[in-house]
Simulated scan of single mutants.
Amino acid sequence: MKVSVLLSAYNAEDFIEKAIKSILEQSYNNLELIVINDGSTDGTLSIINKFNDPRLVLINRENKGLTKSLNEAIDIATGEYICRQDADDYSYKNRIETQLEFLTVTGSDLVFCQAYDGLNAMPKRHMLNKKITARQLIFGNVLTHGTVFGKALIFKENRYDEDWKFGQDYELWLRLLKLGFCMNWSEDELYFLKKHENSISVLNASKQEELAINAIRKNGYNDLFFIRKHDGLVSTFFKKILKRFILFIET
């Protein structure tokens, strides 16, 4: 089974080489790595061009943003499965092999794994059950976008919503759950998440929160329990207790 890995890069010269290597050196070899250089103005393109591997498919064009780039990569993907990789992170050597086996064994449509940022594992084990439900996610998105692995047909028939410049993954996960797709999470640590001051999550935190709430509403869920950054201690504590209760009854 062929796996298509989607990687969009914008001014990622400090990280892109390690990200690409982590995919091309996977223990699972039947893959293609679709790299979209999304209008980078630094040395990103020259670093990508150093790689001489027939499995690497490079699209070099003007900047369109992450959401459009991912949809473009989905359109040209030829694998039976799709895997994400962010340009500033890297995957462990056995990631694809492990996730493919996990998806097969669990009968899932999409699977996620645990990420590590050098200090913390994400999500923490008490934040998510192995079977993911919308009731768990409406408190907030605890899934690392780059860790998703799933059936290509699902992505091709349910593309990222291009109205979501940020948080496009959260909107898609809620939509797929609403449609009845099976999503599972594994505690296997297979992905390293690089946190830095120029990352999307840092630079656009407030906009991401706004779009996350819009994603909940768009898909017919209640945003009352979404944990907002400005929530007081009492409100946050209550929401976290309620989430743990939901996780407990869904176990």
Rank of each mutant, 00 (worst) to 15 (best):
M1R: 10
S4C: 07
V5W: 03
L6C: 10
K18E: 13
S27V: 10
I34W: 03
S40A: 13
S46D: 15
N52C: 10
P54V: 00
E62S: 14
N63S: 14
E72Q: 15
D75L: 12
Q85G: 02
D86I: 05
Y90V: 00
I96W: 06
I96E: 04
T98Q: 01
Q99Y: 04
G107K: 02
S108H: 04
D109R: 02
V111W: 02
F112N: 04
G118S: 02
H126C: 03
L137H: 07
I138P: 05
F139V: 05
N141L: 08
V142P: 03
L143I: 11
V148I: 12
V148E: 09
V148M: 14
F149A: 07
I154H: 06
K156S: 09
E157S: 14
E162T: 09
E162K: 04
F166Y: 15
F166E: 12
F166D: 04
Y170Q: 10
E171N: 15
R175E: 13
M183Y: 03
W185M: 00
W185G: 01
W185A: 06
S186P: 05
E187H: 11
L190F: 03
L193K: 14
K194H: 15
H196F: 14
N198Y: 07
S201I: 15
S206V: 13
K207N: 09
K207M: 12
A212E: 12
A212W: 06
A212V: 05
R217M: 14
K229D: 15
L233C: 03
L233K: 13
S235K: 12
S235Y: 00
L242I: 05
F248S: 09
I249F: 09
